[in-house]
């Protein structure tokens, strides 16, 4: 097994509905998908976000597009027009999830496709 940061393994996008932050996590192949299904549980995501997410976290699987969906309740300071947060729409939550580190089979880590970085400014 190897430890990998989700940034190197997955894509992510997030948005809002009321006080709910809605986050999708995308794998690039079946092996990586199996790894995130196993490792990135609703409980773990809830713990990862700590005080940012006050309510429950639900997880859904969309295997057809190799994705996991996390619906995080009470996660936006009361909802966009009510929230005092600058990220009142939760657009950065996807990136925050990509900070998580998980254990994956060595071959999954070796073939992770998200290691490229933009050119230095």
């Amino acid at each position: 097994m190897a430890r990998i940061q989700l940034r190197d393994l997955c894509g992510a996008r997030s948005g809002d509905k009321g006080d709910i932050s809605d986050l999708s996590l995308f794998a690039d192949d079946e092996a990586a998908y199996e790894a995130i299904v196993r490792e990135v549980t609703a409980e773990r995501v809830k713990a990862h976000f700590g005080e940012l997410v006050r309510g429950e976290v639900e997880r859904y699987e969309a295997r057809n597009v190799l994705a996991l969906k996390f619906v995080m309740h009470e996660a936006l300071g009361g909802g966009a027009p009510r929230s005092l947060r600058s990220d009142n729409l939760g657009k950065t939550h996807g990136a925050s999830l990509l900070r998580m580190e998980i254990d994956v089979p060595d071959e999954v880590a070796a073939t992770a496709r998200r290691r490229a970085r933009p050119p230095r400014p």
Binding site: R13, G15, I20, F26, E58, Y60, A62, V65, A67, V71
Partner: peptide
């Protein structure tokens, strides 16, 4: 396309 497909949809089923 898949990033947009699941955007803000909650339960995708």
């Amino acid at each position: 396309v898949r990033e947009q497909l699941l955007y803000e949809v909650h339960d995708p089923v």
